[in-house]
Design a protein around this nucleic acid. Structure first.
Lengths: 326, 326
DNA sequence: CTGAAAGCGCTTACAG
DNA sequence: CTGAAAGCGCTTACAG
């Protein structure tokens, strides 16, 4: 039914192998032949069958996206979808399809990823989280599946792409200092995660000695957790600057702010500017440049796929300060 | 390198064709042989190569997801990701992969979808929006690509799955009536979309004659649009109930509410309960049952794929009322 | 510069 | 109940 390489070959009066070489733009083929064949391909609206091509090349021309175990994160946090956007841009360009593994629970997802890999549905994986204890990551390592991680891991042999979180902390410290604040309060850090500790380190390394820095960890991850935090900050000094480590938490807190007629600036690290408005006067934030994170992750994976070798480079993408006043 | 059907056949002392039949659980094969072959497959950790299988079966065992042209919607509105969740559940069960087409702009996405179809990367499509003027939909119709639409279209020959939006409107009318409100104000409807008009019809058909219903259309689609709406409602009577047609708009409005010390109830139709808390007293909402929408869409598509025929059934999924008070 | 042939890993009539 | 053979639509040495 669909037109095949044989049909094209016949109509163009060449061998199928020649058509194949034209498709891959093989330099051995004469320009005259190339032109003729290409014209016939257009006329017949020929499209190579990906399955046949994949079968002989032993490639899938597709990559799998692995999302975090805390499934709800994926659905609530704009980070993941935004990173996906960057990944997609590069993937489409290179002819790769993107397969999502979004089953419920780590077990189910693990099984699914194994299936994708063993059945040759994907050539490589991108992890949207960093955890060196993760069974899926261990699996990829063991089976030599090419992969990239978005996030940071404390192992020199594993390759990843992440925001420059230390820089993010530095920017926050500098900006708040410039605004004249003397009291900083970090909200919502879970020190298990390296991006949290890196940000805190960036702040600590860039504040003057007269700055009072306090930290309130482990308040949760959801918008509702952020909302409930308003009770905890109610009796902070009114001239304290709040540094919220996660934008979902920040949004919850902003939502709650008028309960306590809040006057604190709430500074956070954002993936998108979409929620960066409210009745709070200063909505400036650190832009995590998440699309670019996805772009670099996919570029790196593509490089691995093309060269068939793994370069354990660890890359930190620049972040930037965005002024928003309402 | 990877173990193939021949390796299994050799080790099990049968022909490759027999192994193939065991895989598909062909009833012609004796139980004894089946058991032996299965054991060998396990021992060798055999996985069929999807590309080879797809090549002979002329199937991709994958479906493509088409997202709306207004790309930003996809990234801002939880609806799409939630529907995807339902689709995924059924897809994984049936062995289908999910391919996303999330390029920027309709042109790029159209090209991508054509490629997915022509290269046999997908067997069918699910549209996460309903628009009978859409070029991608027209393409699917013309090329006889099996598809399902999530949303409603005014054409009896096109098959879709949608919420029961008329019922949603009815529920809102009944609930607000029960709460004793006499003035309803609909906010944010764009009458181009059938789900908007269906909801309004559901409301109109179920309010008593003494209810005053006003409508303010075309206020936009983003959270920021919702935020800015607070100015427009500032001088509504204080005993008016607001019915917001889109949850993103509702969230923006809720965020703005304390600017005007709002006392209106803000009723909306939600995909998730995640934002359904605030300082407003009543956060009850209509649950659109979006996961189920995805489930039914994928089930329908799978039916088409298995039976090789298109049944133009139009299905409306029940919605429900969720009480939330803070 | 181009073609004929073999092969990628499966499935499916056909034969027995 | 099982096997040998052909074929799905490509690509890639090999030969000329």
């Amino acid at each position: 039914m669909a037109v095949t390489i044989k049909d094209v070959a016949k109509r163009a009066n060449v061998a199928p192998s020649t058509v194949s070489r034209v498709i891959s733009d093989n330099p051995a083929i004469s320009d005259a032949t190339k032109e003729k064949v290409r014209q016939v391909m257009n006329e017949m609206n020929y499209r190579p069958n990906v399955n046949a091509r994949n079968l002989v090349s032993q490639k899938a021309n597709a990559i799998g996206i692995v999302i975090p175990s805390e499934n709800e994160d994926f659905y609530e946090n704009p980070f993941f979808l935004t990173a996906l956007r960057g990944i997609n841009d590069v993937a489409v360009e290179g002819g790769y399809s993107i397969l999502l593994s979004i089953g419920d629970g780590i077990e189910e997802r693990f099984k699914h990823v194994q299936q994708l890999v063993f059945e040759k549905r994907v050539d490589g994986l991108i992890f949207l989280y960093a955890n060196d204890e993760d069974p899926i990551l261990k699996f990829a390592l063991k089976e030599n599946v090419p992969f990239t991680i978005i996030g940071s891991i404390d192992r020199p042999d594993i390759h990843f792409v992440d925001n420059n979180n230390y820089q993010a902390g530095k920017i926050v410290a500098n900006q708040l200092t410039e605004m004249g604040y003397k009291k900083f309060h970090i909200l919502g850090g879970n020190t298990e995660f390296r991006h949290i500790t890196d940000r805190e380190r960036g702040i600590r390394d860039h504040i003057a000695s007269d700055i009072v820095l306090t930290v309130d960890n482990d308040i949760g991850f959801t918008m509702e957790d952020g909302y409930n935090t308003y009770e905890k900050i109610a009796d902070l000094d009114k001239d304290t600057a709040l540094i919220v480590t996660d934008e979902t938490i920040a949004d919850g807190l902003i939502l709650a702010s008028c309960r306590i007629s809040n006057t604190f600036p709430i500074i956070t690290y954002r993936t998108t500017g979409q929620h960066a408005f409210s009745f709070i006067d200063d909505n400036s934030y650190v832009d995590l440049n998440t699309v670019e994170l996805g772009v670099q992750a996919m570029q790196n994976l593509e490089k691995q796929l093309l060269n068939n070798e793994i370069v354990p480079e660890q890359k930190f993408v620049d972040v930037s300060w965005v002024e928003v006043s309402s």
